[in-house]
């Protein structure tokens, strides 16, 4: 087994979320409407449906150095 790398204490992952226009993106909006606070290192890309999610989007994100990909729909 590969040893996972040690994570520095103050490290914050960069997260990219793919969200369905109809549900998860709406939920993200609602979080704002309700002024729920979360870390600013999450960015959202709106998709017409999570069915549109392509392998290459996820791979590309990781390749470009994103630490986590979150897909919600």
């Amino acid at each position: 087994m590969e040893e996972p790398k040690k994570i520095p204490r103050d490290w914050e992952p960069d997260i990219l979320a793919f969200a369905c226009h109809y549900c998860a993106f709406a939920a993200a909006d609602l979080a704002g409407v309700m002024r729920l606070s979360y870390a600013p290192n999450v960015k959202i890309i709106r998709l017409p449906c999570t069915g549109k999610l392509d392998y290459i989007y996820v791979l590309r994100a990781f390749e470009q150095g994103v630490d986590g990909v979150f897909c919600a729909g």
Partner: peptide
């Protein structure tokens, strides 16, 4: 909805985002 409202008080980071 997806920035200023959820990152109140973290102006620098919110601006960056």
């Amino acid at each position: 909805e997806q920035c200023s409202w959820c990152h109140m008080g973290q102006n620098e980071k919110a601006t960056e985002k």
